[in-house]
């Protein structure tokens, strides 16, 4: 590999980014104020984008920043500002059956942990480094080659979503 492609201080950046991502996730689900949750989610999205960069996926990282952090989160902040009512700040924020929810989620986490511990050899350590130089071009070749049909359906889905969102948010149809 050419110099500069060898990652520098990988464990440090991995632990930093994943710590930020998990911390952001915890803050999303625990903040009372919706805007603070949105900010924490932005931190999580940017940290996950950094993790994609470490996984040699620069195009997906760029798409994550543009679409998720720069588009979807702006949408969320708009809607939070539009539906911001004062009384939500004083009500309780978790519903009555929250122990059941947490129990179910922890059970799922236990399932994940058991799978990962038992099947450690299913996830080999040999990380085949993808050639980073033309990642975008290869993704483009695949997108317009193997996944052409899904690509067209995704654009149709976006059209339907645009129409749906516009019509539902209008005051009078």
């Amino acid at each position: 590999m050419t110099p500069g492609m060898a990652p520098v201080a990988t464990p440090f950046f991995f632990y930093l980014l994943s710590g930020l991502a998990v911390l952001g996730g915890v803050l999303v689900i625990t903040r009372r104020n919706a805007v603070h949750s949105a900010l924490a989610l932005i931190v999580t999205l940017l940290a996950v984008s950094g993790l994609y960069l470490m996984l040699y996926a620069p195009f997906v990282a760029g798409v994550q920043i543009i679409v998720y952090a720069g588009g979807i989160m702006v949408l969320f902040l708009f809607v939070i500002m539009l539906v911001n009512i004062e009384r939500t700040a004083k009500e309780r924020q978790f519903n009555r059956i929250w122990p059941a929810g947490v129990l179910a989620a922890v059970a799922l986490l236990g399932l994940f942990v058991s799978v990962y511990v038992k099947g450690k050899r299913l996830f080999p350590d040999s990380n085949l480094p993808l050639p980073e130089t033309s990642n975008t071009q290869q993704i483009g070749v695949m997108l317009y080659g193997n996944y052409m049909f899904s690509f067209e359906i995704a654009s149709l889905l976006l059209l339907v979503a645009i129409l749906g969102a516009v019509i539902m948010a209008k005051k009078r149809i």
Binding site: I65, V74, E132, N135, T136
Partner: peptide, 24 residues
């Protein structure tokens, strides 16, 4: 970066967040 222009467009779209939060 070999996604240079994508990076520039993406990060400059983060500026919108600053404005929205300042107004709110």
């Amino acid at each position: 970066m070999n996604i240079g222009i994508l990076f520039m467009l993406g990060v400059s779209s983060l500026g919108v967040l600053g404005i929205v939060m300042a107004g709110w």
